[in-house]
C-alpha cells in the first residue's frame, strides 16, 4: 500500500476509510516503542506519517521545517529521524550536513520524490542512512521503523523525555535554589528599572536549567518572557516577567517550607 503525497483528497481518503487492503495488512504492523523525529513541511505528509508511525506505538515529534528539525535534533535524543529534502528555511541536505558535523549519530532517512540513483547516491554521501521514496510504501516504512526502534516484546523502552536529566543531588539542588533566590531579587529590580538587557541575561539562565530541576513551568514562562523581550514587545514582556517572578517566588516558598 502506498500513499500519494501530491493528492490531498486521496491521501485523507486512505486514512479515513479503512479499505480491505489496510485491514488485511493490519496484522503486519509491528508493535514498537521509541522516538521518531519527523521533519516535514507538508501538512498532508505530516499527518500521514504521524498517523502510520503512531499505529506501531512509537512516538512522533514533529518539526515543520529544516531549522526546527536541527534545533530539535540537538535538544533531544531520538531513535530515528525521517526528513524531507525540499523544505523552507533550511533544506534537508543542509540539516544533514549540520547533524554530521555536530556528531548526531541517530540514523536519518531522506523522504523524497527525487529518487534518481544520482540523488540517492548524493544523500548517502552527505550522511543519510537511506532514502524513503515518495509515495512511501508502508511495508518499507515499517521495515525501517522495525530496524531502528525497540520491539515492544523487549523490555528496554527508550524515550526522549526519559533521557531528560532530573537532578536529585541535594548539593546541586541547593545551589539552584540559592541562585534562584538571587535571580528573583534581580528580576524584581530590573522590572522596576525596565532594564531589558539584564532581564534577558537573568531569565536566560532560568530558561536553560529549570527543566533539569523539575520546573518545566518556569522554563515555559522564561521562554515566553525571552521571546517578548527579544521582539521588543515590552508591555507583554514585563507582564510575562512578572508572572515568571511570581512563579519563582512560589517555588522558593515551597522549598523553604
Amino acid at each position: 500500500m502506498t500513499w500519494n503525497t501530491s493528492n490531498n483528497s486521496k491521501a485523507s481518503e486512505l486514512e479515513n476509510k479503512p479499505n480491505p487492503d489496510s485491514v488485511a495488512k493490519a496484522q503486519s504492523i509491528p508493535s514498537l516503542s521509541g522516538d521518531v523525529l519527523l521533519v516535514e513541511d507538508n501538512k498532508v505528509n505530516q499527518h500521514l506519517f504521524t498517523f502510520n508511525i503512531e499505529k506501531t506505538g512509537a512516538k512522533v515529534d514533529l518539526a515543520e521545517n529544516g531549522q526546527e528539525g536541527l534545533q530539535k535534533a540537538l535538544s533531544n535524543h531520538y531513535d530515528l529521524i525521517l526528513m524531507d529534502i525540499e523544505m523552507p528555511l533550511m533544506d534537508g541536505k543542509e540539516v544533514m550536513s549540520s547533524l554530521v558535523q555536530l556528531g548526531i549519530n541517530t540514523p536519518v532517512y531522506a523522504l523524497t520524490a527525487n529518487n534518481m540513483p544520482s540523488d540517492i547516491a548524493e544523500y548517502s554521501v552527505i550522511g543519510f542512512r537511506g532514502t524513503l521514496s515518495k509515495p512511501v510504501e508502508l511495508t518499507i516504512l515499517y521495515q525501517i521503523l522495525g530496524q531502528h526502534l525497540t520491539n515492544c516484546n523487549d523490555k528496554v523502552h527508550n524515550t526522549a523525555q526519559r533521557d531528560k536529566i532530573l537532578v536529585q543531588d541535594p548539593k546541586i539542588r541547593a545551589m539552584f535554589y540559592t541562585d534562584l533566590a538571587k535571580q528573583h531579587s534581580e528580576i524584581t529590580e530590573y522590572i522596576q528599572e525596565l532594564n531589558y538587557s539584564e532581564l534577558i541575561k537573568v531569565i536566560h539562565v532560568i530558561n536553560g536549567l529549570a527543566g533539569n530541576f523539575g520546573y518545566d513551568e518556569l522554563t515555559d514562562l522564561a521562554a515566553e518572557s525571552l521571546r517578548f523581550l527579544r521582539n521588543k514587545q515590552y508591555q507583554q514582556a514585563i507582564q510575562h516577567c512578572s508572572s515568571l517572578n511570581q512563579k519563582v517566588a512560589e517555588v522558593l516558598n515551597e522549598y523553604n517550607d
Binding site: 540537538l74 535538544s75 535524543h77 533521557d163 533539569n212 522554563t219
Partner: peptide
C-alpha cells in the same frame, strides 16, 4: 552542540 536542559542521551 548540546542544549539545556540537558538530555543524558545527547
Amino acid at each position: 552542540f548540546i542544549v539545556k536542559p540537558f538530555n543524558s542521551g545527547r
